[in-house]
Structure formats: structure tokens, C-alpha cells
Design a binder for these strands. Structure first.
Length: 831
RNA sequence: GCCCCGGUAUCCCAAUCGGCAGAGGAAGCGGCCUUAAAAGCCGCGCAGUGUGGGUUCGAGCCCCACCCGGGGCACCA
């Protein structure tokens, strides 16, 4: 056992120390018995919903869990003290790959590993004294939960919001599954880090793009209550751009070649066209003569990884498709190329190339010896290649329209109007956001509740047959084979078609686990409900969540998907709000010695060790006090030992109070009473504005002031001392529940301090009877005056000018100007 | 390359409206207590706020440029 814990345990002089671990052991069962954190749906109190991102059950809790829940719990416990009915639920995001991979290695079932970890984490959360409502606990891998995930999927499908399509998708060769766009980071699998390749597969998608504009617009309202970086990340991700679709007739083809451009004003400068090599369109357009060359190029493109494709340094490659398109504005015949620098799944998969105004097109033109025609006048002395800035249009006129001389924005508008009037194109809004690829070729997830029948095609599993439960597979059965492990469970796969009764097979993919976590906050509002995913009335009563606390790594994935689900549910009439989380807090990460904790660096800090050494309260206090919640915490910079010392100091106050419980504070030492009331008032404001570290600092001040009052002031019998100590206990209950409870008991009260209520602030004690006014001459402090807080500007100016030090400073000078900011400052300008 | 956030004492961090740069903690130093140490208690703060300009009676805070750190986007037409 460590030195610190030893000292705490010995408690030889009981007035100085309390036994941290004995205190934890004492109160935990009492709280379990009292069950003070169960949220009452029927409560008449105003409701608050405090949500923390539910954990994935990987081993035991670590420092990251400790930080997020410590911060989150301050808010939940504060609201409770303020008289709100608080729902603070907990559950587990318990489907997912790590358990499946572990099951393969250990020849087990993923559930064994998963549920064992959940139990471990649950016990740890309880010891960590998080004020969760355990009665609402859920696990996304429970059939009772995923039944409703399937139900929601079917509702989405009915509305055309879940559909199957064949297209090139991101494929992780390591995990042997497809990935959503959001799960590919710099060309690598977000989860395992393997280089992602492309495969052409038929997959399930959610049509999140239908909501692109609303998801973007909704961010305007969230801007003031969500972290700026999350809002920015989502805006970037959605990537709205405004431009036009332009139709280029193609010789020998009825359909025109339609491109998307954000620069319709540069249409006159188009000197060639490019189609994404891997777009079906390219294969359609290519001439017979060029087909072999195209196919060779395509094969080469397919081999290139996203890493290569993402490199902007890479030389431009492509192949002439052997067809000609006509520029609608000039009538010119333009060559059409296939190239890999154009993306198949953005816009129309084809572009009009304007080398004069686009560097990528310039590079391609240079590589293929294609002409350049500038349509925007570059500034004097321009030595660059493509010019993308603003300037007057040039070389942009035909018999019907002239853009020459117009600035870019105006030229765009004119061009779009002309295109629309001629039927050659139209103004368009485009988004970077793609539909959400939700199917996965893995086992430990929600089975997609669809049956494929030769006669009937795609048939949804009827609601009354839900859930479609996972077949029992374990160990080697789960090994990635490129097709879902479910496909091998033939008894499970082969079913009668729900529609015609003929032979059919189940869909063998499972859902992305982000589907599970897109609606769990709704389920918490009516967790046991067996007839629907949630009770709309309860959901509308509790939601949207008043605060959502979690890591910023979910800025675009989970947080965007959850918003999307909410909007769909609102459109289905199931909820009456359109954003699930009205405010959000992102905590930083806990690092050590300037670096991320890792096994290879050997700088890991184990939460269990810290709790054994310093106790729950000291660790929680350290995490909250370290700095603003969103800042990273370097464990080497903070002092859990210092936190423990402070808690002992606070606790000791409760033993030095000699007045009986219930003593009225009136008549107590006014100076201490002022400090107490000021601290309580400030603490409320600071919690509301999420400056938890400052709250702790203010409580430390109050503890110091109370100590002073006991030792060298009015003494422990003064009623103000009791008032202060009780305030300390309540304020500390937000961060250090064990210490606060112990103090509360020693002060003669019944448990639990968590429901003691926020101390009432006496406004009259917040008004000071005098304030210090600073007198400056030329901005330098020359004197101080004790004045009444309501002193008039004229009186303060007169006092200031009469101050001897000021008079001295003004000798030989003429007063030019006097700025008075009563009651705190006077600045005299003189020369 | 573009966009966002941040640089305050040895360290972590405070500083509502532009108004005395310091609330709190860590480390350090000194004292009391102690046979001694630990713990406890008391005391000790001349950094002018990354750099250079500007606005202002007055700038950590506002404006401009730059440096450093962190994050997002990036062949998305």
C-alpha cells in the first residue's frame, strides 16, 4: 500500500485525517439503499436530462472515463441541488469489433467478454460515485434493445431512407468489412489503421443526404451552446457548395454529359472535359477504339489506394475516351478524358475543365498538352498558373451573352440565368456529405431485418417477428472471410419468405454500431417499454438533452448521425423536437508527461491505482480542478495528493463547528457570512458557465476563510462558521461526494447531502459596505480610497483630486481630463 | 494551402463591460509544532501577459501583421 493511503488509514490523530477508504466503504451501501438518483417521470419538478456518451465495454474504466464522468456529474449533481428532477442514465454501447476480435482469439462468444466487461465497469462506476440512475441501464447488444434498432431501420426503409445500392465502397482489408466515409481517416481505417481500398459492392445506406441542408441549418442554433470546433467540423463535413449543373451535348449520344461546377462563370474557358475513371459514365462514353486503353487505365486506377489518390503532389494521369462534347456557350468540340483526379461519387462524377482558373485542370492540361484560355483577368504581375481569385471576366462573350468585365460573383449569376433560359443547365446546391453506408460484414452487431426472396425480392421481416436474433457463433466461426460470418450459419440464413412462403435467405450483414448509438438517448426515457422503441410522451417530456458530455472525437460521426435520426423521428411524428442535444461539453484527454498515454511509452496512468492511492474524491477533484473541461490534462502537471490534502482540510472544518445543527446564521460573523454567500452565488454562476475549475478554487477560498475564522477569528462556535462549513459540504457534494457526505454527517445531518439543496443566497450580504477606489494619474496608480459603493461620480472625483498622493503627483501639471468610473476608478489625465 | 481555437509567474491555471495583472493549486523557500520526520498550521509572488505595430485617458482583453502550439478541411470541381 502507498504512503498516502497508509497515512490516511492510520488516522492516528483523528482530528487531522479521515480514512478515505473506510469512508468510501461506509457510504456506498447507504447510497445504494437510499437510491437518491432515480429519475421520477411523474415528478412535478422541472426536468433536466444530463447525458454522458455511453461507454464501449473494453476492460475496466480508465482515466478518460473518470474525467468525462467527473465533469458530467458536477452538472447533474448541481441541477439536483438546485431542485430539478434530473435524469442521468447510463448504458453500454456493447456491439462492436473489439469483442468480436477477442472472441476469435479466445475461441469464445463475443457476449461472454462483453457482458463481463460491462459488469466490471458498472461496479467501478458505482464505486466512483457517479450519480447515475441505474434503473434505466441499457445495452445495445441486448435483443430487447436491438429489436427496436431493427424496427427503426424498417421504418427508415419504408420511407426510402434506407436503401441498397451497388457502388465502390471503402474496404478495410484488416477488419474485412466495409467502412463509412466518416470512418476513413487519411485513407486509413479509423479503427485498426489499415490502408483502406475500394471494392464494388451492394450495400445498405441511410439517405442522410436528404437532410444535408437541415443538418447544416440546425448548426446555426447550436453555435452558441455547442463547442465551436464541433460546429465547424460538421459544417466542413456537410460541405455545402453552390454552383450549377451544365449540360454538354455529346456526339452520337442522346444524353448530354452533365457536370457540376462551382464556377459557371468560367464556362467560356472550358477546354476539355473529365469523367471520373471509375464512374459507370466513363465506361458508357468510351469509344470502341479507346476502350482497351480506358480499361487498362481503369485497372491501374483500381489498384491505387486512397492514400495515393489523396496526394495532391501526384502527377495527373488519364486517358482520352475518344468522344467529343460540345461547349454550349461556345459551340466548341471538346475532348473528353477519364481521370482519377475526378471523384465518381461527388457531383455528377464529371467536370468541365478550366485550366485557366483551376490548378488541378491546369496540371492536367500541362500533362496532356491541352490549351488554356483565361476567363478571369489575373492581377498585374501575376506569375502563377491557374488564377482562382476575383477579377473581371475576359474572353467570355458570344452572340447572346457577354460576361466581360464582370466580377466573378456577378458573372456566375449571369451565366446561370443564361443557362437556365436556354435549357443548358441550372443553378444547383451540392454537398460533400455522402449517404451513410451502414452495412458491415461482421457478426457482433444488429442483423439487418430483411429477407431476400427469389420471387418477391427484398422483403422486410414483419414487425411481429422482431427481433431477428443473432445465431450462436463463436471462435473460428467469426473469422473474417470477406463475407459476413452470418452467411455460414445456414440454418439461420435459410428461411421461408415472409411474403410468399417460398425459400428465401436472410440478409447476412449487420449494422454499423453507430446506428445503435443514434437513438439510445430516446430509449433511456422509457427503458423497459415492450411495445415501441420509446414512449413519445416521455421523450418529449425529458428531451432534448440539456447537456451532452463526451469526447470531441465524435464531432462528425455520432453527433451527426444522432441529429439525423432525431430529424427523421420528428418527421415521423414520434418526437416534437428536431435536435437531440441542446448543449454540449467536450472534455479534453488525460495525457502524461506531455504525451498520450501508451503501453509502448510506458507512461500509462492506471485509474485503479490512483483511486487506491488517493481515493475517489481526490481523483475526481483533481480532474475537475485541473483546468477548463475542454483542455487536455497532463497528469504530471496536477496533484492528486494536493487534492487529498485539500479534502482533509475541508473535512476538518466539520469537526471544529461547535454550534448545534439548525443554528440560525443571523448574528454570525458578518465578514465570513459575506464570503460564504458570495461564494455560493458565484459558484452557481460558474457551474452554469461550465467553469468548474474556478468553482473548486472558490470553494478552496471559502475553506481557507472558514479555517481562519475558526483559528484566529470568531471561533468554531460562531454560527457563521457552521453556515460556511455546511455550504462547503454542499458545494463539495458536486465533486467529492464521499467527503461531502462525511462532513454533512459530522455537522449533524442525515444523508444524503446530495439532496440537501443549494444554500439560499442572502442578497443583502452580497452588497459590500465599502469598496476600494483606485486613483490613477496618467494610468498609474497613485492612491486608493475607501468609498461607499453608491458614491456619486462628482463626489468620487472630488475625493480623488483631494487625495494627498494625487495632489503631489499633479504638482506643476494641468488637469486635462478626469475619467470617473464610480465606484472603483478615477483616472486623471494631466500635462 | 484554407478555416477555427489557444499562448499570463518554474509548472497547472484565474482575471463578467477595456479599469489595481493574481483567485486557487503544484513546486520551492522560511517559521511554528516534533526527540526526529511525516502530517498539520503560519508566512513568502518585481511575470507586465508569444513578437511587432495600432486604437484608447487606460489594452492580457479590441484591430492589423507575424511567430509558436493544438484542431478541422484539403484533387469535393
Amino acid at each position: 500500500m502507498s504512503d498516502h493511503a497508509n497515512q490516511a488509514h492510520q488516522a492516528a490523530d483523528a482530528d487531522v485525517h479521515y480514512d478515505v477508504h473506510a469512508t468510501e466503504a461506509k457510504w456506498l451501501p447507504v447510497w445504494t439503499e437510499l437510491d437518491p438518483f432515480r429519475a421520477d417521470d411523474a415528478s412535478p419538478k422541472p426536468k433536466r436530462y444530463a447525458l454522458t456518451m455511453f461507454p464501449y465495454p473494453s476492460g475496466d474504466l480508465h482515466m478518460g472515463h473518470a474525467e468525462v464522468t467527473a465533469i458530467h456529474d458536477v452538472i447533474a449533481r448541481y441541477w439536483r441541488q438546485r431542485g430539478f428532477e434530473v435524469m442521468n442514465p447510463i448504458g453500454w454501447d456493447s456491439f462492436g469489433l473489439p469483442a468480436e476480435n477477442a472472441a476469435i482469439v479466445r475461441d469464445e462468444h463475443p457476449a461472454t467478454f462483453t457482458y463481463a466487461n460491462i459488469e466490471t465497469q458498472a461496479e467501478s462506476f458505482k464505486r466512483y460515485a457517479v450519480s447515475f440512475d441505474w434503473s434505466r441501464r441499457l445495452h445495445t447488444s441486448d435483443p430487447e434493445y436491438y429489436r427496436w434498432t431493427q424496427w427503426l431501420f424498417l421504418r427508415f426503409r419504408e420511407q426510402g431512407l434506407a436503401y441498397r445500392k451497388n457502388s465502390p465502397v471503402n474496404w478495410c482489408p484488416q477488419d474485412q468489412t466495409v467502412l463509412a466515409n466518416e470512418q476513413v481517416v487519411d485513407g486509413h481505417c479509423e479503427r485498426c489503421g489499415a490502408e483502406v481500398t475500394k471494392r464494388e459492392l451492394t450495400q445498405w445506406y441511410f439517405k442522410i443526404t436528404d437532410y444535408a441542408q437541415e443538418l447544416l441549418d440546425g448548426l446555426d442554433e447550436l453555435e452558441s451552446t455547442w463547442p465551436a470546433r464541433v460546429v465547424t467540423a460538421q459544417r466542413n463535413w456537410i460541405g455545402r457548395s453552390e454552383g450549377a449543373h451544365v449540360d454538354f451535348p455529346v456526339e452520337g449520344r442522346d444524353e448530354p454529359l452533365t457536370v457540376y461546377t462551382t464556377r459557371p462563370d468560367t464556362l467560356f474557358g472550358t477546354t476539355f472535359m473529365v469523367v471520373a475513371a471509375d464512374a459507370p459514365l466513363a465506361a458508357e462514353l468510351v469509344s470502341d477504339e479507346q476502350r482497351p486503353a480506358y480499361e487498362a487505365y481503369l485497372a491501374q486506377t483500381r489498384k491505387a489506394s486512397d492514400i495515393d489518390r489523396l496526394s495532391t503532389e501526384r502527377p495527373k494521369t488519364g486517358v482520352d475516351l475518344g468522344v467529343r462534347a460540345t461547349n454550349p456557350v461556345t459551340g466548341e468540340k471538346l475532348p473528353v478524358y477519364a481521370a482519377d483526379y475526378v471523384l465518381a461519387d461527388y457531383g455528377t462524377g464529371a467536370i468541365m475543365a478550366v485550366p485557366g482558373q483551376d490548378q488541378r485542370d491546369w496540371d492536367f492540361a500541362a500533362a496532356f498538352g491541352l490549351p488554356v484560355r483565361r476567363t478571369v483577368q489575373p492581377p498585374e504581375g501575376w506569375e502563377g498558373e491557374a488564377f482562382t481569385g476575383d477579377g473581371p471576366a475576359i474572353n467570355s462573350a458570344n452572340d447572346e451573352i457577354s460576361l466581360d468585365g464582370l466580377p466573378v460573383e456577378q458573372a456566375k449569376r449571369e451565366t446561370i440565368a443564361w443557362l437556365e433560359s436556354k435549357g443548358f443547365g441550372r443553378g444547383t446546391v451540392n454537398y460533400r456529405l455522402r449517404d451513410w453506408l451502414l452495412s458491415r460484414q461482421r457478426y457482433w452487431g444488429v442483423p439487418i431485418p430483411v429477407v431476400h426472396c427469389e420471387a418477391c425480392g427484398e422483403v422486410p421481416v414483419p414487425d411481429d417477428q422482431l427481433p431477428v436474433e443473432l445465431p450462436e457463433l463463436r471462435g473460428a466461426d467469426l473469422k473474417p472471410k470477406g463475407v459476413s460470418p452470418l452467411a455460414a450459419a445456414t440454418d439461420w440464413v435459410n428461411v421461408d419468405c415472409p411474403s410468399c412462403g417460398g425459400p428465401a435467405t436472410r440478409d447476412t450483414d449487420t449494422m454499423d454500431t453507430f446506428v445503435d448509438s443514434s437513438w439510445y438517448m430516446f430509449r433511456y426515457c422509457s427503458p423497459g417499454l415492450e411495445t415501441a422503441p420509446f414512449d413519445s410522451a416521455q421523450v418529449n417530456a425529458w428531451m432534448p438533452c440539456d447537456v451532452y458530455v463526451g469526447g470531441v472525437e465524435h464531432a462528425v460521426l455520432h453527433l451527426l448521425y444522432g441529429r439525423f435520426f432525431t430529424k427523421v423521428l420528428a418527421d415521423m411524428g414520434l418526437v416534437d423536437f428536431r435536435e437531440p442535444w441542446s448543449s454540449q461539453v467536450n472534455q479534453g484527454v488525460v495525457i502524461n508527461q506531455g504525451k498520450k498515454m501508451s503501453k509502448s511509452l510506458g507512461n500509462g496512468v492506471n485509474l485503479g491505482d490512483q483511486l487506491r492511492e488517493f481515493g475517489v474524491d481526490a481523483v475526481r477533484l483533481t480532474l475537475v480542478f485541473a483546468g477548463p473541461p475542454e483542455d487536455d490534462i497532463d497528469w504530471a502537471d496536477v496533484s492528486p495528493a494536493g487534492s487529498l490534502r485539500f479534502l482533509q482540510r475541508a473535512w476538518r472544518l466539520s469537526g471544529d463547528v461547535t454550534s448545534p445543527a439548525g443554528t440560525a446564521a443571523d448574528g454570525g460573523d458578518v465578514a465570513l457570512r459575506r464570503t460564504t454567500h458570495r461564494t455560493v452565488a458565484d459558484a452557481a454562476e460558474l457551474v452554469e458557465s461550465r467553469r468548474f475549475n474556478v468553482v473548486v478554487a472558490r470553494v478552496m477560498e471559502l475553506v481557507n476563510a472558514t479555517r481562519k475564522a475558526i483559528d484566529s477569528g470568531p471561533g468554531g462556535a460562531d454560527p457563521a462558521v457552521r453556515e460556511a462549513a455546511e455550504a462547503v459540504a454542499v458545494l463539495l457534494s458536486l465533486v467529492a461526494p464521499y467527503t461531502a457526505e462525511e462532513m454533512w454527517e459530522r455537522l449533524g445531518h442525515e444523508p444524503t447531502v446530495a439532496l440537501a439543496g443549494w444554500p439560499e443566497v442572502d442578497e443583502s450580504l452580497l452588497v459590500e459596505d465599502s469598496v476600494t477606489a483606485v486613483v490613477q494619474v496618467q494610468g498609474k496608480v497613485r492612491g486608493r480610497l475607501e468609498v461607499a459603493p453608491d458614491i456619486s461620480a462628482a463626489d468620487l472625483e472630488a475625493l480623488a483630486l483631494a487625495d494627498p498622493a494625487v495632489v503631489r503627483a499633479l504638482e506643476g501639471k494641468t488637469v486635462r481630463k478626469v475619467i470617473v468610473r464610480e465606484p472603483k476608478l478615477v483616472n486623471i489625465v494631466a500635462s
